[in-house]
Design a protein around this nucleic acid. Structure first.
Lengths: 186, 186
DNA sequence: GTACGTTGTTCCGTATACGGAACAGGGGAG
DNA sequence: CTCCCCTGTTCCGTATACGGAACAACGTAC
């Protein structure tokens, strides 16, 4: 490795970082400082003279830019045209749109599609995890089995997700919604 | 970096790789060979004695395992709180569903309704503010006037909101969307 | 004018991730 | 038993990613 096996690799990442950085009107110096990486590192990365960064470096940069690491990487690691990571369950498809890591909290934003006729079960998340669901179309019944919440179009609910919970679309209509999951970090 | 700043980082990745590899009944030697990385590298990575791998190494391993790189990285967790009010503009109604205050970031979650036929102007937010828009119905044209972004149903975009920006629904259809605003706290 | 605060680049010593090779242990095959 | 091929681990020299610091080229303030 480090030879010509992955030709555009170095430049690909650099170009993406630079674009995201400029979209946010942040200077190279500022981003390097805020992300905790050396200016030399970031500079070399952006102009492609320094390929193959360490995962920690990428993590720091992606975090500061407010994007998941995948957003910095060349589109398909293997194949299969999938720009976003989607988790498919029997009743629910969840597409991870954004992740944020703050000092004491991790936040994930999903677009959710719940198909009617099934009930999707989700295991318990770490203690203190809270989910926020905003429904745009259809009516959903969600939450812990012993305290199910019903939400129609425009509705918004939240519940503690550190116990097993379920998702279901009722009234035979597909539900499209946004789901925000906030998990405290140790 | 490289010190104890990211404690679980090294082990987290290693554990995931090892689990994925064993699920596939692939030996460490075989995976190392097929992925084109040294056995020493893979071994050290899996048992956590070698943290902070290079992106090329991760790429090769993830590719061989048939998973996106994100599948190898530490996931998310978090927490929250809550208020509620609606701001009505000429074209846009924004309902504040949730607000979160982390150590260095304020996050606000809105449900957005954009009516067609008008353009809603929004002034600049504080430096570093980023907006994330997820569209569920209709097609929206949003962002800084000189770099407008078009988003259809299911689409998701983000832009820097520290300069004036606009929201509009195009194609005569109402837009319902979720809007996440993240503002760095100085 | 000088003095600062930026910008992004380059130099360079150090830390470390890298893979080749050598290693011990475990099954089969004959 | 020996021989062979596999397993995963450890040793070690080399390649290189890292950040601190020095740098030139800008503005802006006074």
């Amino acid at each position: 490795m480090g030879d010509g096996t992955t030709p555009g690799f170095a430049t690909q990442i650099g170009v993406r970082i630079r674009r995201l950085r400029q979209e946010r009107n942040v200077s190279l110096s500022a981003l390097a400082r805020d992300a905790g990486v050396g200016k030399a590192t970031l500079s070399g990365l952006e102009d492609g003279s320094r390929g193959n960064p360490t995962i920690e470096t990428l993590y720091a940069i992606a975090g500061r830019l407010g994007v998941p690491i995948g957003a910095l990487l060349p589109d398909p690691p293997q194949e299969g045209e999938k720009p976003l990571e989607t988790i498919h369950g029997t009743a629910v498809s969840a597409t991870l749109l954004e992740t944020f890591s703050d000092a004491d909290t991790d936040t994930e934003l999903f677009r959710l599609h719940i198909r009617p006729g099934y009930v999707q079960h989700s295991p318990a998340h770490p203690p203190g995890t809270i989910e926020y669901l905003t429904v745009f179309t259809g009516t959903a019944k969600v939450g812990p089995p012993d305290a199910l919440l019903t939400v129609g179009p425009g509705g918004h609910v939240s519940w503690t997700a550190d116990i097993p919970h379920t998702y279901a679309a009722i009234s035979g209509e597909d539900v499209f919604a946004s789901l925000l999951i906030r998990t405290p970090r140790n």
